[in-house]
Amino acid sequence: MKATTIYDKGHQWIMFGRDPEKPESIIDTNQYMIVAGNRALLMDPGGIEVFAPMLGAILHHAKVDEITDIFASHQDPDIISSLGLWDQALPHAKLHSPWLWEGFLRHFGMNNIEYVGIPDEGNELNLGEVDVRFIPAHYLHSSGNFHVYDPKAKILMSGDVGAALEASEAPLFVEDFDEHIPKMEMFHKRWMPSNRAKNDWVKRVRTLDIEYMAPQHGRIFKGENVARFIDWFEALEVGVAIP
């Protein structure tokens, strides 16, 4: 599992992914962690299959008992099916996830970790040295869905929005936006079910100052590519499986 520090000014943002040992048959995922002093927030920690490489990679950057918080943007297995294992590794941690999914996520096995349901309108989490905001992204693609915004680092962890399906050795950042479009077009058209939800999200994130948009699959958008993505997404017709 490769770990790349994408922000390091007082607190750090670390991206984990591009695991060369990942079985071919499972989708490549990006996991993120904010390290702020002696507290860390692990975001969309991934499925059971990536648990061991993830934990191994994390232990280069933070102590186990410093990982005080976990965030799951929604309920999908590639996001959080490792919960039962984190539950045994981090028994004192808190899981922040949509309130809507609590009863479902507990099926992954949660006997120790505390579930902190995020209300529909979102809220904030204080990590000591930094506050992050849970931004509503309902129906993008899950009925209860949030993204994480760090106003200090100007990073939006955007879950499945901005995701691209490509090889696990792909570069970390989008270099040529136009060239990147075919890698994400089908994903957004099919996985995102609602134009109304999409436009609501577009309106909301346009009010945020974003330098990096970090999705759960594919590459990170940086600088002007963030605005280009938002414009492209706004114009895209989604929910195409309905004839």
């Binding site: 232990l59 280069h60 102590k63 186990v64």
Partner: peptide, 9 residues
Amino acid sequence: KYIKTILPA
């Protein structure tokens, strides 16, 4: 660096 911190778990 922090591998030993997993030992209690």
